[in-house]
């Protein structure tokens, strides 16, 4: 059987809200190391990779590897019924066709359970190579959200260029053009408000803003976001979810013909 308990149930609520518009369905792969998900959007332009470690849960048991096919819109409907302070327990028998979600209020005076019907999903698993990136930028997740939201109102695509001057986001559209540059800045006292730019070599890539904007739905999960860039490769937009794990979004670039 599979059983996973998390005291901070709001994390699961936020995770599903971050994913549900990008990927309608996918498999939760559970094993004794934790829970993971890999899913592409419907146009196969981006990929979401979620990893939640076994030791990040308050209790985790998985006797047998399973792929649980989840419809994220439906999971979201159920998780909306959980209180923000609730402890959430996920449970499934081996080869079950449903996932049970149990919500416990902190005062222990309200306990509810919901069964989510599971789906059979054939998913293509992609191998993501470990690699070094030309530029890695860590910035406040709220800053990333603001940049992609602002630029989405001006244009459809963004040129992201990392140089020793900083990281520049440029777009253009019917109304005109926009450029936003962030510099390496470790002045703020709070680490989560700092911007770190680790540049091995200058790099410039073009991406569809619609997806970058969609990734920012994960902002409530983490105070910082990491962008990793290498020429002619997908950008990685990564949110660390505390001690529990991470959610990574990979977006294929637009490349000149």
């Amino acid at each position: 059987m599979f059983e996973a308990r998390i005291t901070q149930g709001s994390v699961l609520k936020k995770l599903v809200e971050a994913l549900k518009e990008l990927v309608t369905e996918g498999n939760f792969d559970v094993s004794n190391t934790g829970l993971s998900l890999q899913a592409m959007d419907s146009s196969h332009v981006c990929l979401v990779s979620l990893t939640l470690r076994e030791d990040g849960f308050d209790h985790f048991r998985c006797d047998r590897n399973m792929a649980m096919g989840i419809h994220f819109g439906n999971l979201s409907k159920i998780l909306k019924c959980a209180g923000n302070e609730d402890t959430i327990t996920l449970k499934a028998e081996d080869n079950a066709d449903q996932l049970t979600l149990m919500f416990e209020a902190p005062s222990q005076d309200r306990i509810s359970d919901f069964d989510l019907k599971l789906m059979s999903i054939e998913s293509e698993h992609l191998g993501i190579p470990d690699q070094d990136y030309s530029a890695e930028v860590k910035l406040p997740s709220s800053e990333y959200q603001r940049i992609v939201r602002d630029l989405t109102s001006i244009g459809d695509t963004v040129l992201i260029s990392a140089t020793k001057e900083g990281i520049k986001f440029s777009t253009s559209g019917d109304v005109g053009t926009a450029n936003i540059t962030l510099r390496h800045n470790t002045t703020p006292e709070k680490p989560e408000e700092q911007t770190f730019i680790d540049l091995k070599e200058p790099v410039a890539l073009t991406f569809a803003l619609r997806y970058l904007n969609n990734f920012s739905k994960a902002t409530p999960l983490a105070p910082q976001v990491k962008l990793s860039l290498t020429k002619d490769l997908p950008i990685v937009v990564e949110y660390q979810v505390g001690e529990l794990g991470s959610v990574r979004f990979y977006l294929a670039p637009k490349i000149d013909d």
Binding site: V45, L47, L126, A252, K254, D257
Partner: peptide, 14 residues
């Protein structure tokens, strides 16, 4: 003119 690539063009089957 630039073209939007598919993500599978970058990552192999794993």
């Amino acid at each position: 003119k630039s073209t939007q690539r598919k993500i599978s063009a970058f990552f192999g089957n794993g």
